[in-house]
């Protein structure tokens, strides 16, 4: 199957987007004192850590970072096979906090729905917000992101891949198109 790959963001652009999102989080929430970042496995976790580091650089405060695996909250477990779950670690108390969910790509919105359910089982945040590096459209639920690195209009048969140093050894965002339409897209 021939895969056509097109790079749409380089490391500098990713860095700039994350810097802007970090500022926007601080601006919107009047500082970072009440904020908890929760990164969704896999790539949301390093993204959340980078945002936390950026905020520390700007304001000198450490925003706690949690990790979330939504495997047990998906609404499609009978269709997708058994995923390998990664550790979920929600820092201490999220009651009354502003929880900012961080993920790499926002697509159908189903993962975010699952993440909101999962976070609700750990407490009652005063609000939840959503930050993503890429919004590629095609929502299937009434969900939108509060912080977006880049809006990327895509066709359904395309795939957006965010690659990060921590996991993939390099920072870039690419769009892949599968010439053969039979590909199983997620």
């Amino acid at each position: 199957m021939p895969l056509i790959e097109k790079r749409i963001q380089n490391p500098v652009q990713i860095e700039r987007a994350l810097t802007r999102i970090s500022h926007e989080i601080l601006e919107r929430n009047g500082g970072g004192d009440n904020v908890v970042l929760v990164g969704m496995h896999s790539r949301g976790v390093p993204l959340a850590q980078r945002i936390s580091t950026a905020i520390e650089r700007f304001e000198g405060i450490k925003v706690p970072v949690g990790k979330l695996d939504i495997g047990m909250y998906r609404d499609d477990i009978s269709e997708k096979g058994s995923p390998l779950m990664k550790p979920t670690d929600i820092p201490s108390d999220i009651n009354g906090k502003t929880v900012v969910i961080i993920d790499d790509v926002l697509y159908t919105g189903r993962s975010i729905r699952a993440a909101m359910d999962a976070i609700s089982d750990f407490g009652r945040p005063s609000q939840m917000q959503l930050g993503v590096l890429v919004d590629r459209g095609h929502r299937e639920l009434p969900i939108r992101a509060d912080y977006v690195g880049k809006n990327v209009p895509t066709a359904k048969d395309e795939d957006v891949q965010v690659r990060l140093m921590e996991i993939d050894g390099a920072d870039e965002i690419v769009i892949t198109t599968n010439n053969n339409d039979m590909g199983d897209k997620t």
Binding site: R43, G44, K80, S82, P83, V105, Y107, V160, Q161, D184
Partner: peptide, 12 residues
Amino acid sequence: MTLETASQQSFG
């Protein structure tokens, strides 16, 4: 989210 579905389906 990009799901690495194929590689993670290891229960048969």
